[in-house]
Amino acid sequence: MRLREFVIEKLLFIAALSSLAVLALIAVFVFIEGTPIMLREGLGSFLLGAKWAPTKGSFGILPMIMGSIWVTVGALLIAGPVGVACAVFLVEIAPRQVADVVRPAIQLLAGIPSVVYGFIGIVVLVPFIRETFGGPGLSILSAAIILGVMVLPTVISIAQNALEAVPVEYKQGALALGCTHWQTILLVILPTARTGLITALVLGMGRAVGETMAVIMVVGNAVKLPINPLDPARTLTSNIALEMAYAAGAHREALFATGVVLFVFIMILNALANMRLRRRGSHR
């Protein structure tokens, strides 16, 4: 009996280590493929080079880094306010029956395949942007709007947790002092939940940086430094997905190196978000 328990515990422990093992494998394989060219080209000229012509030996991914940053910031400008507002609505305003319908509906947004978003982007949003604002339509703005909608569920659900974690006494206190409900939300609940709200934004950011298939269809993929939101741009993810199929040799290595940059970026965001979550958790 004791032996059986021991074996089971060890097996479960191994299962538990699988996530770590896989994470390590991913890191190892992507790094093995991607780092040699970064070292060969020099990290500086790889990260800060503005020219990407992989078949002619130029591997600078600055335009993609900037593209990813533009698109992500744009997406957060949309998903941040809307997401927090929706979370406040769900936690503070909505009657229970309404919240019970709205909550799963919003999570459904997360379930819709990204290719569907991209497709709707290209047939509805891109022509709209072209007609309304000019430019080619395929642009940072289009990508930011699509991504904004796509990361909403992430932002909302984490923001919601943060708001729900605010001790009810705080709220009662403010109300007892004669604050309106809105003043309570604005001056007590939101500031108290600040850390959690920032975590929501950071994780939303991770989602936005990593999204591929929807972005590739609406962002235009031009390899140049974007100057305004109506310019087409290329993100790190779209760079990989666009050219992976064709790439060989140094070109393929450069795409994996793009993956390395993306991976490191996401891991930093994750670590930030997790540190915040942990800290918050230990306070309670």
Partner: peptide, 8 residues
């Protein structure tokens, strides 16, 4: 030119 829109 790098200004061109790229589609796959």
């Amino acid at each position: 030119s790098a200004d061109g829109i790229v589609q796959d």
